[in-house]
Design a protein around this nucleic acid. Sequence first.
DNA 1: ATTAGCACTCATTGCTAAAGAGTGCTAACA
DNA 2: TGTTAGCACTCTTTAGCAATGAGTGCTAAT
Lengths: 337, 337
Amino acid sequence: MDERKRKILEAIILDYISTAEPVGSRTISKKYDLNISPATIRNEMSDLEEMGYIEQPYTSAGRMPSDSGYRYYVDYIMKKNKLDDAVERLVVSSFRGKINKFDDAIAVSMELIARITRYPSLVLAPGAEKLSLSMIRMLKVEDTKALLILITENRQVENVFIDIPSGFLESDLELITNVINSKLSGKKISDWNKTLIAEVYHELLKQKEILTAVLEAIEDRMHKNKEHRIHLTGLIQMLNEPEFHDVKKVRSILAFFDDKKILENILVKSLQDDDYEVYIGKENEQDEIKDCSIIKRKYNFRGDLEGILGIIGPKRMDYSGTISLLDLISDMLEQKK
Amino acid sequence: MDERKRKILEAIILDYISTAEPVGSRTISKKYDLNISPATIRNEMSDLEEMGYIEQPYTSAGRMPSDSGYRYYVDYIMKKNKLDDAVERLVVSSFRGKINKFDDAIAVSMELIARITRYPSLVLAPGAEKLSLSMIRMLKVEDTKALLILITENRQVENVFIDIPSGFLESDLELITNVINSKLSGKKISDWNKTLIAEVYHELLKQKEILTAVLEAIEDRMHKNKEHRIHLTGLIQMLNEPEFHDVKKVRSILAFFDDKKILENILVKSLQDDDYEVYIGKENEQDEIKDCSIIKRKYNFRGDLEGILGIIGPKRMDYSGTISLLDLISDMLEQKK
DNA sequence: ATTAGCACTCATTGCTAAAGAGTGCTAACA
DNA sequence: TGTTAGCACTCTTTAGCAATGAGTGCTAAT
């Protein structure tokens, strides 16, 4: 694989990315000034095809990149080029001042990714079991109803109504919350153990029933949260891509996106050492997206909460630009601000 | 319009609903035993066409119902037939025991409608502006952050973080909430007026800034709530219908469904006297759904909160069955339980 | 090693003919 | 007078076929 072959492969990929049409030797010779004739390019292409990096839909059509062609491109040819200034400014300004809590950050990120890349964007938020409970409070709302308020470390808030005995006082509630706050807050829910729980019960012998209800509500909420960790937008714009001009494909892909569980599994298989990972075509496990590519990018919200950004698009996607964008957004999320 | 014409129109509509193909005279004569020959049916069809109830896509094709054909069918021919027993049991059992709060009811209804009709289902929950604020509370979370908790009449809870000056005490917060609770709670947000607000400000001269923040947050949340009143599921299964075998249409309809504002407007135009309303094809205002039909059905959750169920499907939909289903679900929602 | 030239391949486009579904009209019938 | 059989006519759909054109692969010349 010499330099010229690399250049030609790059040209084929770039052209195919922008046109979605098989690329011919003449096109490359004219559009990309490599100063070689179509005939020479044809010879090189023949080699590239033998190596498995490009393929023809049928004899005597142009060439298009194969999965391994894209893979080679991503691994060895593509360089991370700087993001367009306008895009960078848009991203930076979108984050400025608008981020009060984690959910805001997620919302802004998703919106940006979907708008700029025009591909569906996924965001995996850190699971609740990794979150600590920051504090709880309880408010008496009616005679037999109290509102339990959970605030997590990353300032997510959850509300649950709890039944309380008639005549229960606001001060009784306070007693309960005080104990729970002192014993359990600041700890990850996965670290709660029997001893800890027993201590809480011990201190609140009289309120056993309501305490059980409260603890159950907390666990329930924290786990429910776990299920809702995946966010998704930008599905429709994907339909503009020529690869989705067939309704069958559209249906299959939309059905695929409807299954949040699968999406979560895809993202959750977490990155090892690298910041990002690219899965091209058949490298994906799921049949429905065997001709899509996925880019995953780690982020650490304010240096603390770890999650994953993801994009699913056609194989023919702008890998370099997309990765740069994810890098930038990941940076923005990291900033302590 | 004599009885026979009615029968023929009905046959045409039923056949077209199930096949999506223009219906010929021979088909009707054979499949529906009206005991008349194709030739006679042709004569009648000719009349029906003149009256505007059916139309031909081109000369010498079969007939298909026109919008006014469907309209005539819905108004004068169709009878509400009893729901399939299995369906009825499914609905009733789906509601049993699972409904703790309004949101549960909505979720179950949507899921049922989408699953049974296979059309996209919409639910409009009662709007916040019709809701009264039941109470607010504020909790100090950090030195400069407080959590504002809004509880509405129907026990929806909203949380907003508010910036507070450093050193602000829990008791200061209490003062504010007390005033707001006494002046504003129990009133619909649409009834807030200048005098009322002025009174609140008067009592809390010293806390002007934070009060403004709190009031703004309340209004913002109540209005945001208004925007989120619409629920939607079952989009994908719609793609199975032959009328959506064209990607352009799919895109336009999906984009349409993405705009919750428009959907809300459609549903919010509320029903006058009747329990339900049917909009057929061009009767809809929005171009994108000029060849869809909408069925809207009023409901009163536990006799109290009024909202609307809606279904959007192809004009070629099972009007009678769908209406029966919506009736049943509306009944289930109404039950005090 | 590169390139010009040329025959060859195969999808796409346009055209025409045949098939088929269904109508509308006319004339016969009860 | 209403109903029906028969038949010509219309218009879409389908298949087949030739022309077009983009692009290749090979060969021979540079």
